[in-house]
Amino acid sequence: MTLDHPVALAPADRAVQLLGGDLTEKALRLHLDGLSGVDAVGLEQRAAGLSTRSIKTSSKAWALDTIIRTCDLTSLEGADTPGTIRSLVAKAVTPDATDPETPRVAAVCVYGDMVPYAVEALGSLHAAGGESGIQVAAVATAFPSGRASLAIKLADTREAVAAGADEIDMVIDRGAFLAGSFAVVFDQIVAVKEACRRTDGTYAHLKVILETGELQTYDNVKRASWLAILAGADFIKTSTGKVSPAATLPVTLLMLEVIRDWHRLTGEKIGMKPAGGIRASKDAVRYLVTVAETVGEEWLTPQLWRFGASSLLNDVLLQRQKLRTGHYSGPDYVTVN
């Protein structure tokens, strides 16, 4: 064992507050290694227990609307075109043409180069960070693999923000994380956060994707969640949707527990976004139950909770129609985008 020179970290505010001004990789590592472990069996049991909640009638109606209101309607395909993005936006604005009471989704989530088309298609409905309207979220930092130089990741981010993205969904460097280079992961998040800064000094919201399917263990997910929050994440997000497994209920529960602990410690509320693999309303409702019973139902707003999904929306709309009319329709009674 050799005595290395301490690796200084970028002075992110939260980390400085928690770990002290002399911010080094060692201090960060000590904190992350000192977190209590996660018992996989127990965690999965708790998630299974939460899944047995029976959400009926008025609670179900509220839940379905909340799923829509907190949905990041997503299209992240190599084959995306300005046309498909305009279609996505139209769906986001009018999820269900048969019922004008249907809430709008929280955001559309697209690749960085599609941001201008999304912004243009939204027009006056672009929330631009405000409370009403629809946000534009862009995946950045060489999504989904994150395998590019920092310079490219930052350029990717800046370009999306400049084009009008209100939210940036970045990926962490999983390779660096698994190799134990916490400083690399940490500094990149801090740098990307800084790249989210607009010319007027405000920041685009930063969602940090952990890609939990590649982190392998719940202990790693817990450490990565803390690391992302300490580095300045506004949201922590499970997955890109390009790796299997993507979002699972136990992983989401675990990340929510970290968010709850951060809130207990500092009073600050961090957002959560499970993404990928949530296709059925029934599953989505289980996520809402997990949020409500872990961090509290005040988290169930678009400011603190999002679903990253593409096919989920139409299933929710079908369920919503069923609740409204008393009978099931079918996939041809909701619109494709």
């Binding site: 909640r53 959400i55 009926k56 009638t57 008025s58 609670s59 909340t66 169930l300």
Partner: peptide, 10 residues
């Protein structure tokens, strides 16, 4: 009524 006061599911 909040979400957490789940509607009766008897």
């Amino acid at each position: 009524m909040g979400f957490l006061e789940y509607a009766p599911a008897p």
